[in-house]
Design a protein around this nucleic acid. Structure first.
Length: 279
DNA sequence: CTCAGTGTTCAGTG
DNA sequence: TCACTGAACACTGA
């Protein structure tokens, strides 16, 4: 569930399944890579018998407020997901077929049982995700170093312009991927934002006209809100989004109306864009 | 068999 | 200092 909309989907799932409940049982996989800076057994010990007060998110990080600290903090890497019993896997979950209801799911890293019978599992097939413990996630790394979260409110235009002016020589694509700038934007969101703002991914942040700055800021908020409103379900994304063209392995890729979609390597990542519309 | 990939970090280079 | 590149991490599916 790697980008903002998918993590927000997970947060809402956790809110529904976990909030107000007591954790009765915890099972952690013996995985020293995913459990970062803490042994799996200690996470299990700290969470057992705690009450979940809320599920919070900033960018791609998700954490639970408990009745006692420390709190668990999750990052999903490229392949992590939150699942609950009885709800099928979404499409694009690595190693799990869409619609699969096998329980517990493959690649479970932490499994929580609640006092009302509910269950929550974090999966992480490729093990690039992390589970950490923090006393105060917002004030400690890595969350403390994140930029604004587009779903929590955009910086006003003046502040946004100032943020751009701090990185004048950065390509727009690289800037959008920088979690210290806009938290939660990943590869497909960055491409979608630049497509909707009609900006070439290689343009420098310091070289935008006033109207382009406004368009960029607007697109960041619109892409985040629209994807979250669609519950991160790709088939519900607006049909005119670039998103639908980016995974097509057919060549050449095009938009629904036949406009060519090009591929480019920017900031080390594969970038899909529409040269005829992005300047 | 090879390689790309919804992410992050770090060493090396210009 | 800034910014970019490539590698590393790990593993599945095309």
């Amino acid at each position: 569930m790697p980008e903002l909309p998918e993590v927000e989907f997970g947060r809402r799932l956790a809110e529904r399944v976990a909030c107000g409940r007591r954790i009765e049982r915890v099972r952690c996989a013996d995985d020293r890579l995913v459990f970062d800076g803490v042994r799996p057994g200690e996470v299990a010990r700290r969470l057992r018998r705690r009450i979940v007060l809320s599920a919070r998110r900033h960018g791609k990080h998700l954490w639970f407020e408990l009745d006692e600290r420390p709190w668990p903090l999750f990052h999903f890497g490229m392949t992590g997901h939150l699942r609950t019993r009885g709800e099928p896997a979404l499409a694009l979950e690595t190693g799990v077929a869409a619609g699969d209801t096998t329980w517990p799911p493959r690649f479970a890293k932490i499994h929580l049982w609640f006092d009302d019978g509910g269950e929550l599992v974090m999966t992480n097939a490729r093990r690039l995700g992390r589970i950490r413990l923090r006393d105060d996630p917002l004030r400690e790394p890595p969350v403390a170093g994140l930029g604004f979260d587009p779903l929590h409110g955009l910086p006003d235009l003046r502040t946004f312009r100032e943020l751009l002016s701090r990185r004048p020589r950065s390509a727009l694509k690289a800037l959008l991927l920088d979690q210290g700038f806009a938290a939660g934007v990943g590869n497909w969101m960055a491409d979608e934002i630049l497509f909707q703002a009609a900006l070439d991914p290689r343009r420098k942040a310091g070289g935008l006209a006033a109207a382009e700055v406004r368009a960029l800021r607007g697109a960041i908020g619109r892409v985040a809100r629209t994807a979250v409103a669609a519950e991160a379900r790709k088939e519900r994304f607006p049909p005119n989004w670039l998103f639908h063209a980016r995974w097509e392995h057919v060549r050449p890729a095009t938009l629904a109306d036949g406009t060519p979609v090009a591929r480019l390597r920017v900031a080390g990542r594969t970038t899909a864009w529409v040269p005829s519309r992005q300047r």
